[in-house]
Design a protein around this nucleic acid. Sequence first.
DNA 1: TTGTATGCGTTATCAG
DNA 2: CTGATAACGCATACAA
Lengths: 348, 348
Amino acid sequence: MTRISRTSTKPLGTPTAAATIEMVAQRAGVSLSTVSRILNGTAVVSDSKKRAVEEAIEALDFVPNPMARGLAGGRTFSIGVITQAIDSPFYGVSLRGIEDELDKGGYSPLFMSAHWDAKLEARCVQTLRSRRVDGIIVLTGRLSDKALRASAKQLPVVVTGRDLKAPGLFAINFDNFGGGLLATRHLVNLGHRRIAFITGDAVHPDSTERLRGYRVGLEEAGLPFDPHLVVAGNYSEHSGMQAVEQLTRDGRAFTAIFAANDQMANGAALCLYRKGLRVPHDVSLIGFDDLPTSSFAVPPLSTVHQPAYEHGRVAASAMLQLIKGIRPEVVVPMPSLVVRESSAAITR
Amino acid sequence: MTRISRTSTKPLGTPTAAATIEMVAQRAGVSLSTVSRILNGTAVVSDSKKRAVEEAIEALDFVPNPMARGLAGGRTFSIGVITQAIDSPFYGVSLRGIEDELDKGGYSPLFMSAHWDAKLEARCVQTLRSRRVDGIIVLTGRLSDKALRASAKQLPVVVTGRDLKAPGLFAINFDNFGGGLLATRHLVNLGHRRIAFITGDAVHPDSTERLRGYRVGLEEAGLPFDPHLVVAGNYSEHSGMQAVEQLTRDGRAFTAIFAANDQMANGAALCLYRKGLRVPHDVSLIGFDDLPTSSFAVPPLSTVHQPAYEHGRVAASAMLQLIKGIRPEVVVPMPSLVVRESSAAITR
DNA sequence: TTGTATGCGTTATCAG
DNA sequence: CTGATAACGCATACAA
């Protein structure tokens, strides 16, 4: 019977009894603080001692205890990351970018999902703060700018998808307008004149920016803006389906659809399929985001590529700089058009 | 653990510097250790003092410092979670389950991606241990059973997708065989007699189990097993495409395809589409996993539903029990058949 | 350049 | 039941 007992007095043969700085110092024949200095590069240390310490560290397989480090130094080397859903197909990629970049700086991410709920998001911030994270990265949250500013007074904050300026706060916005323009121009160039637009969640600035890109794209081409061709979605596949449903129910004539994200484009594609409308023969379709799965959709989806992984890296990099006390300087990656098989020249 | 602050007259950001136990003790007129006891339920405390302390905690908006707790108590209240890719469409849902369940017990997950690389995975374990996590959950990793057993000697380990028994180790396996059987029977019942199978990564037990389900399903129906109809994939969309490519290039006759996961099924669907083969009219298709997006595929994909969210919850729950020192007792959720529109009765 | 001493916020071990 | 007090492992002023 294999029963785990925690009460017993360690009969387990612990191979590595977690070395401490003290042990390292002893083995290297130096003081405890010298080891600490070498570890943190806090001060210059003689080469000989340095070598001795490094050897001891190696030999003892020493790894600093983050807990003690945090307690003593007031830092935890962990960054809270608030995302809306840890299983989001889009943000997931960004999380990886954050993870990778943070790791370079010796930091670890602490992910929390807010599920698109401002209240929950505020709670995430609380929890994160109670965990004493050294900073918080918010991926396009629902928190008010005001709340964000308040948080930034307590600890460094990086937020994506907004334009915002405040001390201790760094906002990174991506060119949603440009992306929207790109997509619209593509459709226009293909000869489409009646292009429907499925919006994202109205409260999202990125959604309204994409819409603006659509409007300007139309304008550029001298095409009229028809409000009836703009239907509201909420970034979910389901809303994409409903949007097409509404469009056809209302008898709107259109030859192309620009969905504010790939998920809605997929929903739209399904609805079109159900109605016997072929993509792209009967209606062209373009999305936004370029989810990893979009190139395998049937047919492969034309879309606006967002470098989500880079987004994550950039955000993490900004945080690292913020922590170091320097004003972040980052290059924000631009969206680009990806033409696949869901969009084609108009046939009628 | 985190208390939601009531509607008080206090403005948003608490400018007060993080309250400590000492401050609480002072305000409540008791000793520091009494507060600790109440916080942890370590011993019985008189009701009067208890009330006083609770009031002080509320008033000071006190939240224990995890760092100090970790240092003193030797615990961190965080659980390492090793997943293969934080942006995996399938595991992402499980992560949410883990997150939610862990939260109930006052624990936080620390996610790490191993990218299907055993070496990297071993490093994740190291990093996690250096962070002093209280336990590690491994989602279907590549680590050898031996390595896992070794880790379990140091701290509680929960692993999914394996059958394994060791002290300090709890393995949760899901019924991949049953799922494979379900899918195969479905196709057989639809009248299909030449059913192709696209395997997952050969090193994965879950993949081979699904294959076994396929074989037994064939057997049950008195159908011959044709090795030529089994083609190797690696769980990626691309490999699904290649598999169909190979099947058709070799001129194999088949009326249905069972892919060992939805991603490969999607790849297969795309390849079929390119070849002018309609789903399900010309060939029926069924996947495995039931990704969130699968119900919006064109056409919506029939598949074997895996309760991934529950998987995560179950794993986390097992970990919590392991930590408490009790032998985990969990109910493992079963897979179920989801018939959508990619599978239909044979037409020829 | 190096070592010493103090403190970080809790838990745990003792006596009362 | 309750309260001192010693760890916990490290960073950091302060000395040398």
